[in-house]
């Protein structure tokens, strides 16, 4: 589904990604972990097409299409969804209105009829039920005055409605207390599907207690330096990222590459 080859990207003139390779198949969840400044958020932003992120080398193929040639809205319409680390507040734009406009823009792109407000509301109710979240967020402006937990829940809710084929969760756990984290993780788990790939970017292992990935990658200095199963995250939690500076992968006690741990 997603093939990233030798990806190099610059932000404000600094090279952040330095030859990143990653392949993700439909139905898989990959976690990307790494220390601050490794380029975790840059990857999500490059994939979503944010301005100011300049790709200098490499390619990203998504379902056979060159993702990097597409505008951000075309990527969204092709099925890419970035759950923001810091969801943007949009005062005055009603959450429901915005989401319907977005969904209908995507439907139009795919040559489907737009949903009217009744049909849309039916869909929204169904998704809220699946995610076990109330409808209090629907009536407010997009993310305006939302708590950290509400913002992240709203991202997951948008994802549920837009049904992307590739979801990138950028530090969705940051700033969440344990209850909010569980709610968000449960939502993500309910959206697991054989047709959907997910990349979960996180600094801490904690989130992976609840969203168990198929693979864990360690991103350091713009490259993936280690790949393993879910238990790699536990090792990282025990040993931290200090080993990266002490000579890299060899010093990390990795014995689980390619192995998928059960939760």
């Amino acid at each position: 589904m997603l093939k990233i080859k030798n990806l190099h990207a610059k932000v404000a003139g600094n090279e952040i990604l330095k030859g990143l390779n990653l392949e993700l198949e439909a139905g898989e969840i990959h976690a990307i972990m790494g220390p601050n400044g490794a380029g975790k958020s840059t990857l999500g932003n490059v994939l979503a097409g944010r301005e100011g992120y300049e790709v200098t080398q490499g390619e990203v193929m998504f379902n056979g299409k060159n993702l990097l040639e597409l505008e951000p809205e075309e990527r969204a319409c092709e099925g890419v969804f970035l759950a923001f680390q810091y969801p943007v507040e949009i005062p005055g734009v009603n959450n429901t209105y915005f989401l319907r406009a977005a969904l209908n823009a995507q439907r139009k792109y795919r040559g489907e009829e737009p949903l009217n407000s009744v049909e849309f509301l039916r869909l929204v109710r169904e998704k809220l039920k699946i995610l076990h979240i109330g409808d209090e967020l629907l009536h407010r402006a997009v993310n305006e005055g939302f708590s950290g937990g509400e913002k992240k829940r709203n991202e997951i809710f948008q994802m549920a409605v837009l049904e992307p084929t590739l979801a990138i969760l950028d530090e969705t756990d940051s700033g969440l207390d344990i209850d909010a984290l569980k709610t968000v993780a449960e939502g993500v788990n309910r959206l697991r599907s054989p047709d959907r790939g997910m990349i979960v970017v996180t600094h801490y292992q904690r989130l992976l207690d609840y969203i168990v990935p198929d693979k864990v990658h360690v991103l350091a200095d713009g490259r993936l330096v280690a790949t393993g199963g879910a238990d790699l995250a536990l090792k990282l939690e025990e040993q931290g990222y200090a080993w990266l500076e002490d000579g890299g992968i060899a010093t990390l006690d990795v014995d689980s590459v390619g192995h998928v741990a059960s939760p």
Binding site: A76, I90, Y109
Partner: peptide, 29 residues
Amino acid sequence: DEQAVFYMRSRGLSEQEARQLLTTAFCRS
């Protein structure tokens, strides 16, 4: 707010739709 424009585009709205929606929202307040 360019962050908001990108946020809306990342959900599928065209740049023009995003700008129109933001300006209208600004006045709708």
